[in-house]
Design a binder for these strands. Structure first.
Lengths: 232, 232
DNA sequence: ACCTGTCAACTAACATGTCAGTTGAAAAGG
DNA sequence: CCTTTTCAACTGACATGTTAGTTGACAGGT
């Protein structure tokens, strides 16, 4: 009756059903378990999750306002596709916020914050030695989240994540290129050194350079995965 | 049976019912027609708007994820209250984005863009002469939106608005102080001059100064309107 | 072969019935 | 008089029935 090409459940989450469904769908979209462009059928989702249409509709509505799904009125609901222009916009926003954050953090950094960052860098180095690129990816994300959190503004971490959802999906299409993790680590190290030296000008400059190389590596993906990108 | 202390209708909007309800509620919250902390009863809203609970729930869900309403599970739904820390965070984010935008725009600005900005500044000047401070407020908002739009990134305008929703409400509590509109216009003029001169360093500096005075004027509001602020 | 109008099957949108958690006031006990 | 317990009324959360708009295939005309 319905396709069952996806694994999905709401175990392990908490709170109201709508919230759990939302979290489950969001995770599946963000880790690319659901291909961009894939049609989401309410009936199938309800059957798979064992809930009624209400919480599913609620979840899809929120995902829609986040831009993770496109709802075509009276017709269909799809996982949103990527688009180069949107990725460039998100990159711009992310750079704006992270550069502002690192500028502030470089001025105010505490010894405890330096310690946390240096531990994270040490971890990155170890993971590269192990060729554990999945682990390195996560440590990379954590490095940036640490800096954002050190602003003392907890919502800034959330907002930065929220404004770069598409970017996060696109990153998963990038295989680790030869030597790239080592380069990224070196860039992180330079940012750290600038923070340590309380040189906010250098910190901003290195952060900007570091983030700009990402969009350069993402742009060519459009021709590599045409089905994942909006045709418009 | 129900309170009718608010005027609300979904005329003048378009699209699905849920969308219209969402827009109507959002506008009422953002223009402070609904006081922060006010309880929103689904039943009353349905009766007032002449729709069923489904579209109202959908609208409240979206408003909740935007932080404009707080839903207390199984209990009540309230218009969210302001908080100093949240306002400072939003101010930080807004400054990050607007400074990045003006830096980019100063480098690339076209003659057409300069013309639109100078027309807006002319309008601001006229409205001050007329002591039309409501009109000046709107022209002020437009000045900033013009610059954000000139980045060529349409979503940046939306994102900037989205990340400063509380700030937008708090601004409405500020009465125009003696001489403040004139000061604001002078600051706008300096930003414009820097853009015209393609001096991105100056543009960023003046934009930063301009935005920082807002949070300084907003902070004292907490003691002035204690009922509008979160007690936590 | 191609365009066009029709229609049946599918979908999201909406309405409404039901359930369960929360709350505050009244009753019971100190 | 103050504290504690109970419980009825209210609220949001969820399930499900109903409506209306969209789409794509198929039939008929060009």
């Amino acid at each position: 009756m319905y396709d069952h090409k996806f694994k999905l459940d709401i175990e392990g989450h908490e709170g109201p059903l709508g919230q759990r469904v939302y979290t489950a769908l969001r995770n599946s979209i963000l880790d690319m378990s659901f291909d961009p462009g894939m049609v989401l059928r309410k009936g199938a989702l309800c059957e798979q999750l064992g809930v009624s249409r209400s919480p599913v509709s609620e979840a899809l509505g929120k995902l829609s306002s986040e831009g993770l799904v496109d709802i075509i009125p009276q017709s269909a609901t799809r996982v949103s596709q990527l688009s180069s222009s949107e990725l460039r916009e998100e990159s711009f926003l992310r750079e704006a916020v992270e550069v502002a954050a690192v500028t502030k953090v470089a001025q105010e950094r505490s010894d405890d914050q330096l310690l946390k960052l240096s531990r994270n860098l040490r971890l990155q180095s170890l993971l590269i030695d192990d060729k554990d690129y999945q682990g390195f990816f996560e440590a990379d994300v954590e490095f940036h989240e640490l800096i954002l959190g050190f602003t003392g503004f907890p919502k800034v971490v959330a907002a930065a994540g929220q404004m770069s959802l598409q970017l996060r999906r696109a990153r998963l299409l990038l295989l680790p290129e030869e030597g790239r993790p080592e380069e990224a680590l070196a860039e992180h190290q330079r940012i750290f050194d600038a923070i340590k030296a309380q040189d906010s000008e250098e910190a901003r400059r290195f952060m900007s350079l570091h983030l700009r190389q990402l969009i350069d590596r993402i742009t060519p993906l459009e021709s590599q995965y045409p089905g994942y990108f909006r045709t418009a």
